[in-house]
Design a protein around this nucleic acid. Structure first.
Lengths: 279, 279
DNA sequence: CGGCAAATTGACCACAATCAATCGAAGTGG
DNA sequence: CCACTTCGATTGATTGTGGTCAATTTGCCG
């Protein structure tokens, strides 16, 4: 159903290949190499570490199904989640360059995971320019998401921050085609959400109640359901440009129109730039 | 004067090449190619944008001298600094893969900058495996720093956060050899520090006064001076492992020893992992 | 000297952390 | 089938870190 036109007369490729294919045109050889590399799939139950802080990296992982996250354990015992991995995401594909992991990767739900030797990753990148490009793309997007989170934690209020995260996850899930309509459920606990947004789990609870009273989200069986996505986006100031979902450079600008305040600020900065050098 | 021993019978290589050389052994051909690529240097004054949010990326930039930063302008007109670029740093070397910049790069001080066409970056990576490796390394470190900042903004108190940032900058500057002893000055304003740490500039001022009263930093001519680095590191819980400065995988672990609290937490998690599946 | 940006200080207060208790649901063992 | 445990969710009370507003001072540069 999802993107049938992209793979007309072919068995459905796995989500990793599909995702890369959205970023760079993959040849049959590319796809075949990727199929082969991700052929060995293991099932991992929820709440297991795929790799832990301090380990030397040994394999690259591809999440083919389920949710996982990248997190850090702090010296004081608290946990900070710095990224979510959804089906189709690779993690730390080039981490072998570094000596040791400074974060852990853990599953949030039961997952299907392909473990690829780094040697294979290297070969794929070396012999398949389009795969190379697609891999870079995904690393850059990861970094852009990290930047957006950093900005959010520093600037946004707790409820906007949570709402923004919910929007981001929806857009990402939509992009790989694993959710259909305007709502989805997120199988994570409030404590995990707290470790994501950098707020206390108590406050997460209050924030969610607020969002519920605004009819923006709902909760069933321990998992969130988004109701009014558009309003949620507006509420949180979500602009999807940093996810770089659009394929071509030629399309229209995705930058959110600046508010009047921002415009005047920008003008001041630019004027200053001409005069005295402020940006 | 700086590190004459590293390049005995050779004209001083620029800091970019030096930095890459710390991460992967560069051949003479590698160095020559890099020299050539970074030959065209332009001087840029302080507080200019090298590239702005919304632009399509056109060149990769190498900062050869001076300080710059990556920042985002938010719709409400505020600014958030998400990375600092110091001499030897490249920025967005592979950004050509993306359609548009979602952040700006601006100088903080007068800078010497080399602009490299993306085509050249691509060729360097394609024909020089060691450069390829070193480039990946620097991107991964960028990402690790971003993660550490994210954790810090979410979890650390304002003074720890600022102190941590000061430690990080010192270690980075030390690593490229542009500072000598145990102190250095940082030519940024308190407002810039505020936009970095995600706190108000008023509070930055109070934090700095606190650090001054603790004899950890000092201020002269609008630039900070760190006094007691070791104590500053202890104060902020700074552990340099995420900067991945050590070259070899075989060296001793750099992971900060966990506190007792953290150990018991970790044990709980691991025990849980065996039993019920918590991490 | 005048103009401007950065730094500083004080007063006030709000958002969110912390502490502490309770509740609810799911799973477990008797 | 029912106690018991455990984890997650919920609620209230209290505290405090850091934001906002506003005024003043310092330092820089023309």
């Amino acid at each position: 159903m999802a993107f049938p036109s992209l793979l007309p007369n072919r068995q459905m490729a796995n989500l990793f290949i599909k995702k890369l294919g959205l970023r760079a045109p993959l040849s049959d050889a590319d796809r075949q190499a990727l199929e082969q590399a991700t052929a060995k799939v293991v099932q991992v139950e929820a709440h297991r570490d795929l790799i832990s802080q301090g380990d030397a990296p040994e394999h690259a992982f591809i999440i083919l199904d389920g949710f996982a996250c990248r997190y850090k354990l702090l010296p004081d015992g608290s946990r900070s989640i710095v990224a979510y991995l959804i089906p189709g995401d690779g993690c730390d594909l080039h981490a072998s360059i570094l000596n040791q992991m400074v974060h852990s990767i853990g599953t949030l739900t039961p997952c299907s995971v392909a473990a690829i030797p780094y040697r294979t990753v290297k070969e794929l990148a070396a012999y398949h320019p389009n795969i190379y490009k697609a891999l870079w793309w995904s690393v850059l997007v990861d970094e852009a998401i990290l930047q957006e989170w950093l900005v959010g934690v520093g600037r946004r209020s707790a409820d906007k921050q949570v709402a923004h995260f919910l929007c981001e996850m929806m857009v990402r899930l939509e992009a790989v085609g694993i959710i259909r309509g305007n709502s989805y459920k997120l199988p994570i606990t409030q404590s995990e959400l707290a470790d994501t947004a950098g707020i206390s789990h108590v406050h997460v609870n209050r924030v969610l109640q607020n969002l519920k009273s605004l009819r923006l989200v709902d909760q069933k069986w321990r998992s969130l359901v988004l109701l009014d996505i558009e309003e949620l986006k507006r509420f949180s100031g979500f602009a999807p440009d940093y996810l770089h979902l659009r394929p071509s450079r030629t399309e229209e600008s995705l930058i959110e129109p600046l508010t009047d305040v921002a415009k005047s600020q920008l003008q001041m900065r630019q004027r200053g730039q001409r005069d005295k050098g402020m940006f």
